[in-house]
């Protein structure tokens, strides 16, 4: 494990600030009116604008489903991948070339369902990417089947019968799997979502932003109004949305080398992710600075301190391959 620990993120930035509309591609989204996807893609465009990222250094990967199309709408290198496989694509890209900023998106079915294995293992690696999950509890593009985040007993109008499988808790799962930044936001809380995405991109390591969003066509249980209506606390009416900082909870690990404090904080973060409430709690549940996959690679493979894997020189100016094979062949020489 790397001994030196860099915690500051260095991002490729512009001297000028592009307006969010300049970061829209000229392809128009074909989502249903009122879809939460609009809010999320807007927030991503705003975050990229605010951080002044060089758009050509941004690789924006997406899975399959309604959310998958988001890769077509940001004016950056947009890569629409396979169902459930967005994380392997994003990880492969970031490891090969750590100089680009890698953002991955996908739906709850894509990431927590068919891609669940990759979701879990991405935590173990701590590759420096940002993963934004569009969570609406249904598989929209195939007409509203239950996703892994739909609670047991629920029956959105698209289901013939009530749902009889339990939901997963993506935040707790991410914390347990080793993600080093875990947050929840909401598609139409533009300010919070933009800031959370910026924080996630600024975090050095693997970040999960689970974004609640309405599906106006198939999920009638949690429409936009659900998020704006108030909740009766017994004494007073409170807004549905609550921010973590209002609760006094703080999920930031100050010193990861203090293992006892680190473990205690991790357990507290998982407990917070499971806290029973009628409100939708937004905020950063967990953040810790640990060596990234690239840091650990550099320890094992010193040459990678100097070069990205894809940039290790292997030919001369005349395109003649010039890797010296003598150490590769040494054990075979007779």
């Amino acid at each position: 494990m790397a001994t030196k620990q860099q915690t500051e993120q260095t991002l490729p930035t512009l001297d000028v600030k592009l307006k969010p509309f300049q970061l829209r591609s000229d392809k128009n989204p074909d989502w249903c009116p009122g879809c939460g996807d609009f809010g999320i893609v807007n927030a991503i465009q705003q975050a990229v604008s605010e951080l002044q990222l060089q758009p050509w250094k941004v690789e924006f990967f997406a899975g399959i489903g309604c959310s998958g199309k988001s890769a077509q709408y940001l004016q950056a290198y947009g890569i629409h991948t396979l169902h459930g496989r967005v994380l392997p694509y994003a990880l492969g890209a970031k490891i090969a070339n750590p100089n680009n900023v890698v953002i991955a998106t996908g739906g709850d079915g894509d990431g927590y369902g068919i891609g669940a294995g990759h979701f879990l293992h991405a935590g173990r690696r701590n590759v420096d990417i940002t993963y934004i999950v569009f969570n609406n509890e249904v598989y929209g593009l195939t007409k509203g089947q239950a996703s892994p985040t739909l609670e047991v007993g629920m029956q959105p109008k698209s289901l013939a019968l009530p749902h009889i499988s339990q939901a997963i808790n993506p935040l707790a799962l991410a914390i347990a799997s080793g993600y080093t930044f875990v947050a929840r936001s909401y598609a139409f809380d533009a300010k919070h979502l933009k800031q959370t995405i910026m924080d996630a991109i600024n975090h050095r390591g693997v970040s999960l932003v689970d974004v609640h969003q309405p599906c106006p066509t198939y999920n009638d249980l949690h429409p936009k109004e659900y998020y704006t209506e108030t909740v009766n606390s017994g004494q007073s009416e409170l807004p549905r949305l609550q921010y973590l900082e209002e609760t006094g909870y703080n999920g930031f690990v100050e010193d990861a080398s203090d293992l006892e404090a680190y473990q205690a904080k991790k357990i507290a973060a998982i407990a917070e992710a499971y806290r029973l409430t009628d409100r939708v709690v937004l905020g950063t549940y967990w953040k810790v600075d640990l060596p990234t996959y690239a840091d650990r690679l550099e320890t094992n493979i010193p040459l990678l301190r100097e070069y990205a894997p894809m940039d290790v020189p292997f030919h001369d100016d005349n395109m003649i391959a010039n890797t010296d094979l003598s150490s590769a062949c040494e054990e075979f020489v007779v």
Partner: peptide, 19 residues
């Protein structure tokens, strides 16, 4: 990788990036 599917798709991601 965690599985065969990850390993082909990681390779695709890296190849897209130019490796």
């Amino acid at each position: 990788a965690e599985d065969e599917i990850a390993s082909i798709n990681m390779a695709n991601g890296a190849a897209v990036t130019g490796a």
